[in-house]
């Protein structure tokens, strides 16, 4: 008769905060919330703009408040972290790039994509600074 009595160990319910790659994953995913929140701020601005000059002025007032400045700094840090880690994940989500019969290394894809993202952001900042000079 079989003596087999397989024992299933429970999964650690806090695996997502285990030090190392699991915590890095959780932080990467959490930083996506910063992107969503920043989108919500922009959306609120748009609604205020549609609602009339009074609403728009109060939105601008909110933007100038210390709470908003701290919030924007925190969100900026979150978004920058998200962009960095998003492009680190990018090579894992796309088909292998074969150039001249050889596979392009993941690190190179990440580096170039991050440079393009940084370049686009810089161009956007320059355009915004020029428009509001």
């Amino acid at each position: 008769m079989s003596e087999s009595r397989p024992y299933r160990r429970p999964i650690d319910p806090k695996w997502w905060w285990a030090p190392g790659p699991y915590r890095a994953y959780t932080l990467r995913e959490l930083s996506g919330v910063a992107v969503a929140l920043y989108g919500a701020v922009l959306f609120a601005g748009l609604i205020c703009l549609v609602s009339g000059p009074m609403a728009w002025d109060s939105f601008l007032g909110f933007l100038r408040s210390p709470v908003s400045i701290v919030l924007h700094l925190v969100l900026l840090a979150g978004v920058v972290y998200h962009v960095k880690t998003w492009f680190e994940t990018l090579p894992k989500t796309m088909p292998k790039m074969i150039v001249n019969g050889k596979q392009v290394p993941a690190t190179e894809i990440t580096r170039k994509a991050q440079m393009v993202a940084a370049g686009c952001s810089l161009v956007l900042v320059v355009i915004a600074a020029w428009a509001f000079r």
């Binding site: 994953y25 989500t93 796309m94």
Partner: peptide, 25 residues
């Protein structure tokens, strides 16, 4: 959910995370 640790622990650098995520697309 693209945790990605599968590829980190692979002793043969197979990159299974890439295989899964390509096939999500």
């Amino acid at each position: 959910t693209a945790v990605g640790v599968c590829s980190e622990v692979c002793p043969k650098q197979v990159d299974p995370a890439n295989a899964i995520n390509q096939n999500k697309t």
